[in-house]
Amino acid sequence: MDKKLPISCPSCSAGLKVKSLYCENCETTITGQFELPVLLRLEPREQNFILDFIQCSGSLKLMASKLNLSYPTVRNMLDDLIGKIKNLQHHD
């Protein structure tokens, strides 16, 4: 089963931070307070969109044909994503 990385608090909806990291190999645990990178704070479908976009060499035309959507639909998705990323970076 694929576990979904929680990015917001289920109780108050605030953004979550990383408190501990664990090494499976030597069982070392590092504790502290780390920010999640911007890309990890996106929804899984948005992360998949970015992966598809990179795999299409950044071509919206290729993306549109791969997703069976029109060019402006894909461009609007990208513009929405750019807006969201700018917003996340602004709040950092």
């Binding site: 069976n68 959507l69 029109s70 060019y71 402006p72 639909t73």
Partner: peptide
Amino acid sequence: PFYYIAGLKS
């Protein structure tokens, strides 16, 4: 339909 088709085709 424009969600799926636009540009020269439409």
